[in-house]
Design a protein around this nucleic acid. Sequence first.
DNA 1: CTAGGTGCAAAGCGTTTGCTCGGGG
DNA 2: CCCCGAGCAAACGCTTTGCACCTAG
Lengths: 129, 129
Amino acid sequence: MKAQRYSKQRELVLRTVKDHLTHPTALEIYGLTREKDPTISMGTVYRNLNLLAEQGKILQIKVPGGADRFDGIIEPHNHAVCTKCGMVMDYCFDFEDLSRSLEKSGFKCEELNITVRGTCKNCLTKADE
Amino acid sequence: MKAQRYSKQRELVLRTVKDHLTHPTALEIYGLTREKDPTISMGTVYRNLNLLAEQGKILQIKVPGGADRFDGIIEPHNHAVCTKCGMVMDYCFDFEDLSRSLEKSGFKCEELNITVRGTCKNCLTKADE
DNA sequence: CTAGGTGCAAAGCGTTTGCTCGGGG
DNA sequence: CCCCGAGCAAACGCTTTGCACCTAG
């Protein structure tokens, strides 16, 4: 692993995500950090968000067709995105009852976007060689 | 509904998606259609892909963090994306046994990306007013 | 001192859009 | 003849990156 130095900016980004559980986008985090440190740059925010997500210190929510969002709560859980206001709701899925329980909670389930990421048979075989 | 005219380009785009079940991206479809009609433009391909997807004639697969892919098979089904080669595999999910059955088929499930799109309680209430 | 981090700006990628012209009905 | 659709290129939104400078260790 690469040596990692302390940086004021990285700590600020981490604290900002941890303090705002509204699933902010990178741009929103940029705005929030700017309030505390008016010289922080977009690039730094993105670099640190990606770094912190890789290290598992924050969660990166890939929203299909929209900007990524970040979550300070790192316990594995899922998200329901409102197509109208963009709100992201934390949600603990019971797969069998997914739609049904979502509907019970008042969320009208219109599109279920499921993407499994992983490694396919072919690539697993190739990796063995 | 708006009147819709026939267009050679739209038919070509539709046929191209139906004939290539490899889940091509818009760019790949652009390349394929260009082989048959060297004057077709990117904008036309995108416009028609979106139109056909809206009409349910093709399926649009939103790949988080990557280009959208299109599928000529419109029966509802899900997809597993390989993080290494980008291959998109058709998959019929049994939610309970999701990971288990995926693993049985040789796909190493590394990241389960679930996003439900729909309308949240707040917006449903507002729409009623 | 030196390697990792920053700010800045430009480039990148996938996609959409404004405009003008062509062609289906 | 009307107006939807095409072609083209510019603009878009989000994100990454190259570079020169700064700073923690």
